[in-house]
């Protein structure tokens, strides 16, 4: 679901330095990650919330602590609500290759949008968890000299991820400029 406010605010970046050969990679619109990534997120939340709820409930019944039982129920409800929003959250993850930088956005409650110039990428990392691997997905992580950049593009089909990585590394090479 494209966010009209953000889509409007993202006029294409400076088109001055772009020539024909560098135009090939430019996306016209936001690209989304695979919908199958919802499964990865849901499995992660279910395991995490399940363990917490189970511990709280067991403690509550063994030591007769009603607050622990209530806390367990509360955690469970919050987890269920957040799982219900998971498809929406995954749809909000998007990226867009512009002429000279990569724009990444995510979040429905806490929105964040980051632009990383290609020349600033120090390395591009592909990581795969067990669930992602079963679904044929991969996470792409971008590292710059600033730790706070923290851009990870999750849930890309493996082929896409590898293609994107090679492309970005090549772009970074042509635009590298100092640190």
């Amino acid at each position: 679901m494209p966010d009209p406010e953000h889509a409007a605010s993202d006029a294409p970046a400076s088109d001055a330095p772009a020539t024909d050969d560098t135009r090939a990679h430019v996306d016209d619109d936001w690209r989304r990650v695979s919908p199958k990534h919802v499964v990865v997120e849901v499995v992660g939340s279910v395991i995490g919330a399940g363990i917490t709820v189970a511990v709280l409930l067991v403690v509550g019944s063994w030591f007769d602590l009603p607050w622990a039982t209530w806390a367990g129920i509360a955690v469970g409800v919050i987890a269920l609500v957040s799982i219900a929003f998971e498809p929406r959250r995954v749809r909000s993850i998007g990226y867009r290759r512009r002429a000279d930088d990569l724009v990444f956005r995510r979040g429905i409650m806490f929105q964040r949008q980051v632009a990383v110039p290609y020349g600033r990428m120090q390395l591009v990392d592909i990581t795969r968890g067990p669930v992602s691997r079963a679904l044929g997905l991969a996470d792409l992580k971008f590292v710059t000299a600033a730790a706070s950049t923290a851009v990870t593009l999750p849930g890309l089909p493996l082929d896409d991820a590898e293609r994107l990585r090679d492309e970005l590394v090549a772009l970074a090479e042509t635009r590298r400029a100092g640190l």
Binding site: S9, A11, A13, D101, Q113, A115, P117, G119, A177
Partner: peptide, 19 residues
């Protein structure tokens, strides 16, 4: 904020190339 974001992103690319 959106205007500043766009301006900074574009200017950064331009300056890095010329620096």
């Amino acid at each position: 904020a959106a205007a500043a974001f766009t301006a900074i992103a574009a200017e950064a690319v331009d300056r890095a190339l010329r620096d």
